[in-house]
Structures are given as structure tokens and as C-alpha cells.
Amino acid sequence: MYNKLTSEEKMLAYSEVANNKKSTDVAYLLWFFLGSIGIHSFYLNRKGSGITILI
């Protein structure tokens, strides 16, 4: 059976998504200034590519 969320649970889920969203502008700034060491990848939770760039 499908379990529907209450309106309070939906609002909580939407606020969590909004708070955890990564800013594209910040990612581009990190890439521009610190891209050679992969900081933008770590910011975007891409640890594998961040470590590869760092090495």
C-alpha cells in the first residue's frame, strides 16, 4: 500500500531539500579559483573525482 505523507511531513521534506541544495554559483566560483585541486568536486559531494583531481 502507498503511504501518503501528511502536509507537515511534506513541508519538512521540502525544507530539507531546499537547505541541502548546492549552489551552482558557488560551485563555479570554487572551480574557477580552486579547480586545480578539486575543491568544487568535494563541495558537490563527488569525493571520487575530487580525490582524483587532487592527486
Rank of each mutant, 00 (worst) to 15 (best):
M1H: 02
M1C: 06
M1T: 04
Y2S: 04
Y2L: 09
Y2I: 09
N3C: 08
K4C: 02
T6H: 05
T6G: 01
T6Y: 03
S7K: 06
S7T: 13
E8K: 09
E8P: 00
K10R: 08
A13Q: 08
Y14I: 03
Y14V: 00
Y14N: 00
S15D: 09
E16K: 12
E16G: 08
V17Y: 10
V17H: 09
V17K: 07
A18F: 11
A18M: 11
A18P: 08
N19R: 11
N19D: 07
N19I: 08
N20V: 14
N20H: 08
K21I: 13
K21P: 00
K21H: 07
K22H: 13
K22L: 13
K22Y: 12
S23I: 00
S23F: 00
S23D: 02
T24I: 12
D25V: 13
V26R: 10
V26H: 03
V26G: 04
V26N: 06
A27K: 15
A27V: 12
A27W: 06
Y28H: 12
Y28D: 14
L29Y: 14
W31I: 07
F32Q: 13
F32P: 03
F32S: 09
F33H: 11
F33C: 15
F33P: 05
F33R: 06
F33W: 14
S36Y: 14
I37C: 13
I37T: 14
I39M: 07
I39Y: 03
I39H: 03
H40K: 04
S41V: 10
F42I: 10
F42M: 13
F42P: 10
Y43N: 02
Y43G: 01
Y43C: 05
Y43E: 04
L44R: 15
L44S: 08
N45H: 04
R46F: 01
K47I: 05
G48N: 08
S49N: 15
S49P: 05
S49I: 15
S49F: 08
S49T: 10
G50I: 01
I51P: 00
I55H: 06
I55K: 07
I55Q: 06
